[in-house]
Amino acid sequence: MRSLLWLIDNVITLYVYLLIASAVLSWLVAFNVVNVRNPVVSQIGEFLYRVTEPALRPIRRVLPNLGGIDISPIILVLLLFFLRNLMFEVFASLA
Rank of each mutant, 00 (worst) to 15 (best):
V36A: 11
L76F: 00
L19W: 02
R50E: 03
S26V: 03
L4Y: 15
R60W: 09
G45N: 14
I59G: 07
R84H: 09
A30F: 10
P54C: 00
L66P: 00
R37S: 15
S93A: 15
R57E: 08
Y15F: 12
V29G: 01
L83G: 09
L78W: 06
I69W: 08
L19I: 05
A23F: 08
V33W: 15
L79S: 13
V34Y: 03
N35V: 11
P58D: 02
A30R: 10
S3Q: 10
G45Q: 10
S72F: 01
E46R: 15
L25F: 04
L76N: 00
L78I: 05
L83W: 10
V40T: 13
M87W: 01
F31M: 14
I75W: 04
L66S: 00
N10T: 10
R57F: 06
N65L: 11
R57K: 10
V51M: 08
V24K: 05
R2V: 13
V16L: 05
W27D: 02
L86T: 08
L19H: 06
V51H: 07
A95T: 14
I8K: 02
M1V: 12
L76C: 04
D9V: 14
R84M: 10
L19C: 06
R61F: 00
L63G: 13
N32H: 07
N32V: 04
V34G: 02
L79V: 13
I12E: 07
I20V: 03
R50S: 03
F47K: 13
I71H: 03
V34P: 01
L14C: 11
Y49M: 11
D70L: 03
I74N: 12
R60S: 02
V51A: 09
W6S: 12
E89I: 08
S93Q: 15
R37K: 09
G45E: 10
S93C: 11
F91E: 12
F81N: 09
P64Q: 04
I8Y: 01
N65E: 10
G68I: 03
G68R: 01
T52H: 04
V40Y: 11
L56S: 01
S42M: 14
R57W: 07
V11P: 03
Q43L: 06
F31T: 14
N32R: 05
E53I: 00
D9M: 09
A55C: 07
F31N: 14
R84F: 05
P39Y: 00
V41C: 03
A23Q: 07
I69A: 15
A95G: 11
V36Y: 15
A21P: 03
L94Y: 14
W6L: 13
